[in-house]
Amino acid sequence: EVTIKANLIFANGSTQTAEFKGTFEKATSEAYAYADTSKKDNGEYTVDVADKGYTLNIKFAG
């Protein structure tokens, strides 16, 4: 089991951190699914992958 950390960075400057656990593939998939659901309210996003994929910096356009 691994933990994927997602740092969500919103257009207004606020941030949120979420953690997803499971296999690398499952946790990563859940992090992207979470970003997709947040996209409806926060606009399109880009992802900067860090820490060999264990940290995702997800920046929303607003």
Score class of each variant (00 low, 15 high):
Ala31Thr: 03
Val49Thr: 10
Val49Glu: 07
Ala31Phe: 02
Thr17Asn: 07
Gly62Ser: 10
Ile58Val: 07
Ala33Trp: 09
Thr28Gln: 09
Lys40Met: 12
Thr37Ser: 15
Val47Ser: 04
Asn57Ala: 04
Ile4Asp: 00
Leu8Trp: 03
Ile58Tyr: 10
Thr3Ala: 06
Phe60Tyr: 12
Leu56Met: 06
Ala61Pro: 08
Phe10Lys: 04
Ala33Ile: 09
Thr37Asn: 15
Asp48Tyr: 11
Tyr45Ala: 02
Phe20His: 02
Gly13Met: 05
Ala6Trp: 01
Glu25Gln: 11
Ile4Tyr: 00
Glu30Leu: 13
Ala18Phe: 14
Thr46His: 09
Glu19Phe: 15
Val47Gly: 01
Phe20Trp: 04
Asp48Glu: 15
Thr28Tyr: 13
Ala33Gln: 11
Ser14Lys: 14
Ala18Ile: 15
Glu25Thr: 09
Asn7Ser: 06
Lys52Cys: 15
Thr37Tyr: 14
Thr55Glu: 07
Ser29Tyr: 11
Leu8Val: 06
Ile9His: 10
Gly13Ala: 05
Ala31Gln: 01
Gly53Arg: 02
Leu56Trp: 03
Thr46Gly: 04
Ala31Lys: 00
Thr15Ala: 08
Ser14Gly: 10
Lys26Asn: 12
Glu19Ala: 07
Asn57Glu: 06
Thr23Asp: 08
Thr55Phe: 05
Ser14Ala: 13
Glu25Asn: 08
Gly13Pro: 00
Leu56Val: 06
Gly22Met: 01
Ala6Thr: 08
Phe60Gly: 00
Gly53Thr: 02
Lys40Tyr: 10
Gly22Ala: 05
Thr23Val: 07
Leu56Tyr: 03
Asn42Pro: 03
Lys21His: 14
Asn12Ile: 04
Val47Thr: 06
Lys5His: 09
Phe10Gln: 04
Leu8Cys: 05
Ser29Ile: 12
Lys21Arg: 14
Thr3Leu: 09
Asn57Trp: 09
Asn12Met: 04
Ala18Ser: 09
Gln16Asp: 09
Asn12Ala: 05
Leu56His: 03
Val49Pro: 06
Ala50Leu: 14
Asp41Trp: 14
Gly62Met: 07
Asn57Tyr: 11
Thr37Phe: 14
Val47Cys: 07
Ala33Arg: 11
Asp41Tyr: 13
Thr28Lys: 08
Tyr32Asp: 02
Ile4Gln: 02
Ala35Tyr: 02
Tyr45Ser: 02
Phe10Asp: 02
Lys26Arg: 12
Tyr32Pro: 02
Val47Trp: 04
Ile4Gly: 01
Ala6Glu: 00
Glu1Leu: 13
Val2Asn: 04
Lys5Asp: 02
Phe60Asn: 00
Gln16Asn: 09
Gly43Met: 06
Asp48Gln: 13
Asp36Trp: 04
Thr28Cys: 11
Tyr54Trp: 07
Ala18Arg: 15
Lys40Asn: 10
Lys59Met: 13
Asp41Arg: 10
Phe24Met: 10
Ile9Tyr: 13
Thr15Tyr: 11
Leu8Ser: 01
Asn7Cys: 12
Ala11Cys: 12
Asp51Ser: 03
Lys52Ser: 14
Ser38Glu: 14
Thr46Val: 12
Glu30Ala: 13
Ala50Gln: 14
Asn12Gln: 05
Lys5Met: 09
Thr55Arg: 04
Val47Glu: 01
Lys59Gly: 05
Ile58Ala: 02
Ser38Arg: 15
Val2Ile: 11
Val47Ala: 05
Gln16Val: 14
Gly43Trp: 05
Asp41Gln: 12
Lys39Thr: 10
Ala6Arg: 01
Val2Asp: 03
Asn57Asp: 06
Tyr54Gly: 05
Glu19Met: 12
Ser14Trp: 12
Lys40Ala: 13
Ser14Val: 14
Asp48Arg: 08
Val49Ser: 10
Asp41Cys: 15
Tyr54Asn: 06
Asp48Thr: 14
Gln16His: 13
Ser14His: 13
Leu56Pro: 02
Ile58Lys: 00
Asn42Thr: 05
Ser14Gln: 13
Phe20Glu: 01
Leu8Pro: 00
Gly53Tyr: 02
Phe60Ser: 00
Glu19Leu: 13
Thr3Gln: 05
Tyr54Arg: 07
Gly43Lys: 03
Tyr45Val: 02
Asp41Met: 13
Thr28Phe: 08
Tyr45Trp: 08
Glu30Phe: 07
Ala27Asn: 01
Gly13Lys: 06
Thr37Pro: 03
Ala33Cys: 09
Leu56Asn: 02
Ala35Gln: 01
Ala31Leu: 06
Thr15Gly: 07
Asn7Trp: 06
Ala6Phe: 02
Gly13Cys: 09
Thr23Gln: 07
Phe20Ser: 01
Gly22Asn: 06
Glu30Val: 05
Gly13Val: 03
Lys39Cys: 10
Asn12Arg: 04
Lys39Leu: 07
Lys52Pro: 03
Thr55Gln: 07
Ser14Asn: 12
Lys40His: 11
Asp51Lys: 03
Val2Ser: 05
Ala6Met: 14
Lys21Asn: 09
Lys59Cys: 11
Asp48His: 12
Thr3Val: 13
Ser29Phe: 12
Thr46Tyr: 10
Ala61Asp: 12
Phe60Leu: 02
Ala6Cys: 15
Glu30Gly: 05
Glu25Phe: 07
Ala31Gly: 03
Ala11Glu: 09
Lys39Arg: 12
Phe60Glu: 01
Tyr45Ile: 03
Thr46Lys: 08
Thr46Glu: 10
Glu44Cys: 13
Ser38Lys: 15
Gly43Ile: 04
Leu8His: 01
Gly53Val: 01
Ala11Asn: 08
Lys59Ala: 08
Gly13Asn: 06
Ile58Glu: 01
Thr37Arg: 15
